[in-house]
Design a protein around this nucleic acid. Structure first.
Lengths: 265, 265
DNA sequence: ACAAAAGTGTTTAGTTTACACCCATGT
DNA sequence: ACATGGGTGTAAACTAAACACTTTTGT
């Protein structure tokens, strides 16, 4: 059992030692970052898992790749610039893909790396998850015919899109993260416009979890959770019959107490 | 609004375009990884947030750094080798720090990057979180006098250790992740030995959340959650009075339904 | 008047909490 | 015998689920 605080300092069993050179002063001093060694360097990219609701279905934005590539679809993303933060790079690229700036939600999902994920381009990819309201319109066709929203339920089906690299796993991780976060955070509102009805919010849960929720009980649950939503004081102009619904905005809560639990196992 | 699927392909507002060269075939085809560009490359390191329970307190392993450095303590970690997976690198370095192989739990926490985290060594650091049982003994003193377990409650106090770089935030993120995961996963058992009593398990929650739990109710809750623990069929030899407790092992569940919720807001 | 969607009330079942009590062991 | 910690029982309080019913709109 070693306690020197250096995984790199020798004695490491499974991996072969990297090519590194130690300076005389920065020896075994418990410091790791900025050591005068020559570690392997790689490119860092960002992958975006952009989720939204379209037609009552949870959808992810994919980019079509042209014939020279055998796998047709990939997540949007790109390399991280040298002078930018990871979060900054993610929001920059989110802007580039969707034009979205303020609304919604963007968080780091997970980092994927290792020599096996893309043999031609070793490197790490930091995946980000964004939850967005249904965007204006210019999805398939128009300005960017390469981008398309795909229902996540179609990704496993044979006529669904084939995804490059480890992107199937990244999408799955992002969808699962989003589904889980709906339980204990108020992030469902990130799928909605700035002002929304409780029915809008309920449809987020119903689409993401593929369940039917009881509207009266859902309403009580949301309104009794402090900071989840705040009433705006206005009502919708009803569309095609039915009582106009009250409008709400996101509250200040960052977590739901108690959570809105999924019934599933 | 752009829909070309390339954050790098121009039109990106906040950041300056990187130096990149496009090949004739790999044009604007919706592909990002392995593009024939020359992106900035950086070193990738792993930081380990190793948590355990010692004397009823949640503790984190820190490495002492010698005088040339003004900040005295840092998380264990090191560079990722070129030919290894991120998870592999993390478990390799965990082994190097603690000798631990099978028990406990190791998961990716988050990636920290950007030019401002350590000016002397730009690069990204992938933090991993490990939950470990109380290790045999050789902590401070013995083989590795640089490593020391610090109660996480002492990190904010003035006589606590000063942490380098963004390590305070990484530790805080790891502790919060651990606390949250105790609610809805059976990971409390990762802090225990292979066989443990329900009182051992309860003390994990009490130490991590700094609460007192009612033993009868905790017992019922755990036993009624399918797959949380399985009885071994043996009992402890009691230490200093009291009825011997039944021994349990981790169950097969990966999530707790229903969760064990914290009472706090 | 009727359909449709929003919102309220109520009954019932289930879960959580608090705490009294019993059990098995060391001293 | 008694202290100590493990384990069981139970009644009250709380929470969630199901669904009948009222309100407000468009047609």
């Amino acid at each position: 059992m070693r306690w020197d605080g250096h995984g790199q300092t020798g004695g490491v069993p499974p991996a072969s030692p990297p090519n590194q050179v130690r300076g005389p002063r920065d020896g075994d001093d418990g410091r790791r970052h900025g050591d005068p060694v020559t570690p392997p360097v790689v490119a860092v990219s960002v992958d975006l898992v952009l989720l939204t609701l379209r037609g009552g279905r949870l959808c992810v934005l994919l980019i079509r790749r042209d014939p020279p590539f055998d796998v047709a679809w990939a997540l949007p993303g790109g390399f991280v610039d040298g002078d930018e933060d990871l979060d900054t790079s993610a929001s920059r690229q989110l802007w580039a893909e969707t034009g979205v700036t303020t609304t919604g939600h963007l968080e780091q999902l997970r980092t994927y790396g290792g020599p096996h994920r893309d043999p031609r381009a070793p490197g790490v990819s930091v995946a980000y998850l964004a939850l967005l309201p249904n965007l204006p319109q210019p999805a398939p066709g128009g300005d960017g015919p390469r981008a398309r929203w795909w229902p996540v339920a179609d990704l496993d089906s044979p006529d669904g899109p084939a995804l490059a690299f480890d992107h199937p796993r990244i999408v799955a991780d992002g969808v699962e993260r989003a589904r889980a976060k709906l339980e204990y955070t108020p992030l469902a509102a990130a799928f909605c416009e700035d002002q929304f009805t409780l029915a809008d919010l309920r449809r987020v849960y119903e689409a993401a979890w593929d369940v039917a929720l009881d509207p009266p009980n859902f309403r009580r649950k949301v309104l009794s959770t402090p900071g989840f939503v705040v009433p705006v004081g206005r009502r919708t102009s009803p569309r095609g019959g039915g009582r106009p619904a009250e409008l709400y905005r996101r509250g200040s809560a960052t977590a739901l107490h108690p959570p809105l639990l999924r019934r599933s196992v």
